[in-house]
């Protein structure tokens, strides 16, 4: 069964993507529109599919994959099923970077991609601060240092909100923070993709460490694994993934926390086998959640991040409940 997990999730992801591409107010043939767009023709289908739905779909999948993968990596490293990617401080750092753009109107030459670029920069800055604070100490220090940097960035973000130049800027910022993949273009994908690729490469390079760490740091070290160095690489990878996704889509909560829980029983709980399935499942989940957002009655759009939180929180409560019953 474990062998079928990746193909099954890949098929599910493809189906979700096709569903997302075919869904919208205008009835357009998906494959016709795609081929027109690829051929460079300016038909209605090419514009609707290629310019609007494709970036949105790919971005949803990319963000979901980044969040799912970073969750699997961090939970494996910290050996804590409640570890959330936002713990690294990268989420708050990205939010602060983007908020600074909305507030000060920085980087006007980048246009609509400016918040994303600033978000990525903010995520990297928060991450470097966190790594410096955590030092070469044990991975559990990452939680403390991440919390400290998150709090710092959160305080700065609150300050920015407090002094927002006008209600409109504040509203724009809050909506952006709620998390969404709508009204994004391929330039956002171009920002997410390098972070996704680099972060994934770093995480995948430490698969053996994740396996060894299931038996504790001492055993991992005795099996020839470099826990300190590998741990920093994993944190860096996870922070790149989270920072990249927050930078382009705002905060989409619970995906990084929940996806590993859904995947774990499918791979016999082996942390090193969780990575690819978590990325695929994360992509599916966010893509389908975005489909749900678009299916809701028109009017003021429910933000994607709000929907994942609304769906994720009860699921999380159920997980805690199940865990409690196991121990009592």
């Amino acid at each position: 069964m474990a062998r079928l997990v990746v193909p099954a999730l890949a098929a599910l992801l493809l189906a979700s993507a096709l569903l997302s591409l075919s869904l919208g107010s205008a009835a357009v043939p998906v494959f016709g529109g795609l081929s027109d767009w690829l051929a460079g023709e300016a038909s209605l289908g090419a514009i609707v599919i290629g310019e609007i739905r494709l970036p949105r779909t790919l971005l949803a999948i990319g963000v979901g994959a980044a969040l799912g993968l970073s969750g699997a990596a961090l939970q494996g490293l910290l050996r804590n099923p409640l570890a959330d990617p936002a713990l690294t401080g990268a989420s708050q750092g990205a939010a602060l970077g983007a908020a600074a753009v909305f507030y000060f109107g920085l980087l006007p030459q980048l246009g609509s991609a400016a918040p994303a670029v600033a978000g990525l920069a903010g995520a990297l800055a928060a991450l470097l601060l966190m790594l410096a604070l955590a030092g070469s100490a044990r991975p559990s220090m990452v939680i403390m240092a991440g919390l400290a940097i998150s709090t710092l960035a959160g305080a700065a973000l609150a300050t920015v909100l407090n002094f927002a130049p006008n209600p409109y800027a504040m509203q724009e910022l809050v909506f952006w923070l709620l998390g969404s993949v709508s009204e994004r273009g391929l330039e956002h994908l171009a920002l997410l993709l390098p972070a996704l690729l680099a972060g994934s490469a770093l995480v995948f390079s430490q698969r053996r460490l994740l396996a060894g760490l299931s038996l504790g740091e001492q055993v991992a070290q005795s099996m020839g694994l470099n826990v300190a160095r590998g741990g920093r690489i994993l944190v860096l990878g996870a922070a790149l993934l989270v920072g990249g996704s927050v930078a382009v889509a705002g905060t989409i909560g619970f995906v990084g926390l929940l996806v590993p829980h859904l995947v774990r029983p499918l791979v016999r709980h082996r942390p090193e086998r969780m990575l690819l399935p978590s990325a695929l499942a994360g992509g599916c989940l966010v893509c389908l959640a975005d489909v749900c957002v678009r299916l809701l009655p028109p009017g003021r759009e429910l933000k994607l991040g709000v929907l994942t939180a609304l769906l994720g929180a009860p699921l999380f409560i159920w997980l805690v409940w199940r865990e409690r019953n196991r121990w009592s």
Binding site: R79, S214, L215, G216, Q218, S222, H269, R270
Partner: peptide
């Protein structure tokens, strides 16, 4: 090591 344990239900 002295006290073996597995973080996951392996």
């Amino acid at each position: 090591p002295q006290a073996g344990h597995s973080a996951w239900a392996l």
